[in-house]
Design a protein around this nucleic acid. Structure first.
Lengths: 106, 106
DNA sequence: CACACATATTAGTGATTGCTAATATGATAA
DNA sequence: TTATCATATTAGCAATCACTAATATGTGTG
């Protein structure tokens, strides 16, 4: 039986709720990368990406390891990778019915 | 090969990004319910819940059917149900490392 | 028809969020 | 040590979001 606190769950799910974070996850889904590689990949700004990385780490979705002056980030484990894949699978099935949330919530 | 537009994907994922919406999804995961049943379940307010339902519908996660003066909502299909289950499975594995986002993003 | 009930929509506002720019930390190399 | 590069953190503000209250729509019933 799975026992999960709803607030913890929301923190976890928060990781998936921003375009930049999803792009980061996709960027490091199969190979670890340094912050600057990710910044380049996404054509983003260093501070911003760094903040999103901190968020993803806090959400338990990625892990980082320091190697010299670089920090390498990767997706936490296979389960998280599976979840990312599952998004695409479900989305493939659902996408024609998505109209959602121009102004969000409504 | 899965082909998914990132903006469509974000609209889809937006559905999972709010506590009330997750609670709604859990509430109707295994059985359809009317709006007022959901409002009762969550101890929420009618307008608010109705807005979140519209969001979830727009995100492609739930469907509604009118029956007389009631509208019954249910989780769209088994894939979405699987995804909800998967959240719990992954979370079970990850939850001890979640500290995320007190002020969000950081 | 008028009324009651169920749900949806809109408007307005307070709160939250995420960005940019600036600065700080930490690590290597000269 | 100082300089440089990589990353992290902070502050402040602009933009976005979600709530409540009010109102509208739609459906059945007397």
């Amino acid at each position: 039986m799975l026992k999960v606190d709803i607030d913890t769950k929301m923190k976890f799910l928060h990781g998936f709720s921003h375009k930049t974070r999803i792009q980061i996850l996709e960027s490091i889904k199969t190979e670890e990368k340094t912050v600057s590689q990710i910044v380049d990949d996404l054509n983003g700004n260093q501070s911003n990406i760094s903040q999103h990385l901190a968020c993803l780490k806090g959400c338990g979705l990625i892990v980082g390891r320091q190697d010299g002056k670089y920090v390498y980030y990767r997706v936490r484990n296979q389960l998280v990778r599976d979840l990312l894949t599952m998004f695409d699978v479900v989305l493939e099935d659902v996408q024609n019915d998505i109209a959602c949330c121009k102004n969000h919530i409504d």
